[in-house]
Simulated scan of single mutants.
Amino acid sequence: MHSMHLYSGSLLRAYRFHKYAGKYLCRQTSNKATDLMVEELFEGLCARNRTSLARSITLVETSNPDKKKLAQSLLSMVANNLKQQEEERNGAPVSFRIGLSGPPGAGKSTFIESLGKQLTATGHRLAVLAVDPSSSTTGGSLLGDKTRMPRLTVDPAAYIRPSPTRGHLGGVTRSTNETILLCELAGYDVIIVETVGVGQSEISVADMVDVFVLLMPPAGGDELQGLKRGIVELADVIVINKSDGDLVAAARRIQAEYLSALKFVRPRQAGWKPPVLRVSSRSGEGLAELWTALEGYRRQMTADGQLAARRRRQRAVWLWAQIQEAVVAAFRRDAVVSALLPRLEKDVRRGRLPPGAAADRLLD
Rank of each mutant, 00 (worst) to 15 (best):
M1L: 06
S3L: 13
R13G: 10
A14S: 14
F17M: 14
K19Q: 12
Y20V: 12
L25D: 08
L25V: 14
Q28M: 09
N31R: 13
N31G: 15
D35M: 03
D35I: 05
D35Q: 12
E40P: 00
G44N: 10
A47F: 01
N49W: 02
R55Y: 09
T58W: 01
L59K: 03
L59N: 03
V60G: 07
S63G: 12
P65C: 09
K68C: 07
L70W: 09
A71L: 08
M77C: 09
M77G: 14
Q85T: 05
E86P: 03
R89T: 10
G107A: 09
G107E: 05
T110Q: 07
F111Y: 13
G116V: 05
L119V: 01
T120S: 06
A121C: 00
T122W: 00
L129E: 04
S134A: 13
G144Y: 01
K146P: 00
R148V: 03
M149H: 03
P150A: 04
P150I: 04
L152G: 05
A157N: 12
Y159L: 10
T165E: 02
T165K: 02
G170S: 06
V172N: 01
E184L: 04
G187S: 10
D189M: 05
I191D: 03
V193M: 02
V193W: 02
G197P: 08
G197Q: 07
S204R: 11
V205K: 03
D207E: 15
F212A: 08
L215V: 13
G220K: 08
D222Y: 12
K228C: 04
R229A: 13
I231G: 02
E233G: 14
I238V: 15
V239C: 09
V239L: 11
V239M: 10
N241C: 12
R252D: 11
Q255T: 15
Q255A: 10
L262H: 10
R266T: 15
P274R: 05
L277G: 06
R278A: 12
E285W: 02
L290A: 11
A293S: 14
E295G: 07
G296C: 11
Y297K: 07
R298Y: 12
Q300R: 15
L307M: 13
A308F: 06
A309T: 06
W318I: 09
W318F: 13
L319F: 14
W320C: 06
A321S: 14
A321L: 11
E325A: 15
A326K: 11
V328C: 01
F331R: 11
V336I: 04
A339F: 00
L341S: 01
R349N: 01
R350W: 02
L363Y: 00
